[in-house]
Design a protein around this nucleic acid. Sequence first.
DNA 1: CTTGCGTATGAAACCGCTTTCACAGGCTGG
DNA 2: CCAGCCTGTGAAAGCGGTTTCATACGCAAG
Lengths: 337, 337
Amino acid sequence: MPTIREVSRRAQVSASTVSRVLNGTAPVAEDTRRRVLAAVAELSYRPNAFARSLATNRSGGIGVSVNDLASPYYGAMLQGIEAEVEAAGMHMVVSSGRADSRKEREAVEFLLERRPDALIVHLEATPDMELLELMRSAVPVVLIGRHLADASERCVYLDNENGGDLATGYLLANGHRRIAHIAGPLSFPDARARLQGYRQALENAGLAFDERLVAEADFLEEGGYRAAKRLLARETAFSALFSANDQMAAGALQALREAGINVPDEISVMGYDDVLFARYLSPALTTIRQPLVEMGQAAARIALDVLDGRETEVKRKFEPELVARESVQRIGQTVAN
Amino acid sequence: MPTIREVSRRAQVSASTVSRVLNGTAPVAEDTRRRVLAAVAELSYRPNAFARSLATNRSGGIGVSVNDLASPYYGAMLQGIEAEVEAAGMHMVVSSGRADSRKEREAVEFLLERRPDALIVHLEATPDMELLELMRSAVPVVLIGRHLADASERCVYLDNENGGDLATGYLLANGHRRIAHIAGPLSFPDARARLQGYRQALENAGLAFDERLVAEADFLEEGGYRAAKRLLARETAFSALFSANDQMAAGALQALREAGINVPDEISVMGYDDVLFARYLSPALTTIRQPLVEMGQAAARIALDVLDGRETEVKRKFEPELVARESVQRIGQTVAN
DNA sequence: CTTGCGTATGAAACCGCTTTCACAGGCTGG
DNA sequence: CCAGCCTGTGAAAGCGGTTTCATACGCAAG
């Protein structure tokens, strides 16, 4: 591996000059500049990233923590983050927190040790207080998928309460009155907000909240499957089911199928997130779209803006959007097959 | 941020000693050791990762390149890699190559610039020659999901030909004779091998290969959907459809549904990969399982072993396994609903 | 013809760690 | 009793960049 000094010797200049040419930090005579570039090419020189980091105190890395690398939900976010980060010539260091407060803390610690220039985190299990403390640390932190009133300008989030309301409202508009809900882990703000939106919509429609219609699960397929079974076992009739995310909805669909219940003829099902596979479920899942890729991009853009000391004007609050497909149907109606 | 020198002053020792305590690179008297540790704690000192990297020429990072961060396929692999890499106290720098030979090259270049200690790459579009050249470079490279005869010990892969054969054989065993195939991009070795396995199985069964039964697509849902439509439009009857991956199978399922064709009563569908959502499709997808998480782990383990100069004894070649669910049915039979 | 300024460049300090080398002191074995 | 060897420690030399500071040069202004 050639060093900057070797390049400088070959180009008959000092190391400083090579550095200046490469970084454009000071004017260099056109002639010198060409010699340097030629030497760089001939030796196929690559600056040593460590040395550069040490000198500049910049790693060029953005630490990213999400819950689960294998989930389509986080995958979409990562994709958005990656696009922006790499466009800025930086890279992502990713680690997952597995939705456990201790593990989340470890993941953040882990990333911080690598001295990233900024952190983009999706932390669900970490309490607000701890989050605020983290955000006071030296490295800029952007929160994704969560809103903290005290750090609003560093949060990219979706109005989940509105989303829950939208989902439930759509079911109500289709004539449903007995609407079950599979909630996410209620220790997560997202899950609570969606549940809250659900209650809100019921209330607005003059319907009483019935906790026998609610089952808490874990945002995973298997959990949704089991939650649906529990709901069914309670023998509290319902004509529609709103799941707090698509993954659980997929599980629920399976549980209903196994129980010989036709969706949407007998029970309508509503998801949340609009992950990629939602449209390929059968029936294609009606759901609430979260613009995950865009949210990832926004988070990255904010982080980069903060790093460069720019005042950021990126959109932070995203609105949920209903995506009507086949799994919800007007009550009483039956689709001809 | 305290430096090692501040710690050393506080503990009344030299910086060397602090370094030795922290890294365990040389024996240190128990008493000194305690003083150092105390000073570290009091100052909440964290070694500067850049300086350390510069001195040791080790970044502690493993570069990982996959095609698509949002796909369940790569997500599972990443998960496996992450587990091993973090257990070894290292981190992942990830970048995606988007299955395009130029972009793949860029992604690798990008990672190499960050001086990772090793590279784990899933490169589909890059030609063998270029791959071999990459593997001759200074940093250890592990190939995942692809086999190069000339670098076998650095490849973690699945026997895809066998997988294609297994899938097709299962359909044959269920009495199917007219079996269509949605292939992946034939520029990818994986896709070619699966197609080859398909031909192989047909041949073994004494059936002629009929290219009208094969449609090439892109490994994505949408592509599978369109490929299935094309196949249907050809009016070449078939009773079973083998898709080279689950994502395309999901799309195909949708196309068949739209065409009013019942799966599996009229046409059986076979996937490949067993990604998470496969079981939640309707009908639940019968598929070929690729142990993606394990393969990711194996790749990481090999990389770490090479780094430590250990002779690795990790399994490299994985065997496909059939997962029978509901989308394939014995020909002529009809499941009671 | 000075003076002064702007431009282009080099020397050297510095970033914070690891590691080599030297050495002191206490033991061991011949 | 002394040579030789451990064990524990410090000083200093890197690692390979960036950046500050000084300087040389050319040219315009006085």
